[in-house]
Amino acid sequence: MIGVRRFAQWGLWFGGALVLLAAVLIGIDVLMRKFLARSIGGADELAGYSLAIGTTWGLGAALLDRAHIRIDSLYVLFPQKLRLALDLLALVLFTAFFALTLWHGLGVVGQSWTSESRSQSALETPTIIPQFLWIAGLVAFVGIAIVIIVQSLRLALAGDLNGMAQLISTRSAEEEVEDEIRDLKGRQDREGSA
Rank of each mutant, 00 (worst) to 15 (best):
S39Q: 12
I148D: 00
A61T: 02
D160W: 06
A122D: 13
E124M: 11
R190G: 07
R154T: 11
G60L: 05
I168T: 06
M32V: 04
R38H: 10
L21D: 05
I144C: 09
F7Q: 06
A156V: 06
L100T: 12
K185S: 10
E180K: 12
V142Y: 06
S115V: 11
Q111L: 12
R33G: 02
A122F: 13
L84A: 08
V108Y: 13
L167Q: 06
D44G: 06
I129K: 04
R154C: 10
L36W: 14
S119W: 08
G16D: 06
Q111G: 11
S152N: 03
I128M: 10
L12H: 13
L82E: 02
T56P: 00
R33M: 01
L51I: 14
L59D: 06
T114D: 12
L25N: 04
R38T: 13
Q188M: 15
I129G: 02
L21F: 15
V147M: 09
E175L: 06
S117N: 12
G3D: 08
I181S: 00
F98T: 00
I40C: 02
R190L: 11
Y75T: 05
E124V: 09
Q111D: 14
L46R: 03
V109C: 03
S193W: 12
M32P: 04
A85E: 05
V150I: 15
M32A: 09
P79W: 12
L82I: 14
D160T: 03
L18I: 01
G11H: 07
S50Y: 11
E174G: 02
D160C: 00
Q166I: 00
E176T: 07
N162G: 07
T125W: 11
M32Q: 09
L153A: 12
Q131T: 05
T95G: 06
F94D: 00
V30S: 06
R83N: 05
L91N: 04
G11R: 02
S169W: 03
V4F: 11
R66W: 10
W13G: 05
V177N: 10
S152K: 04
R187T: 07
L36T: 03
L63H: 04
S112C: 08
H104R: 11
F141V: 03
G41L: 11
E124D: 07
V142N: 02
V108G: 02
M164D: 07
R154D: 08
A43D: 07
A99D: 00
E45C: 05
A122H: 08
R171P: 05
G107L: 11
W134N: 04
F78G: 01
A23I: 10
V19P: 01
L93E: 08
L36M: 14
V177P: 00
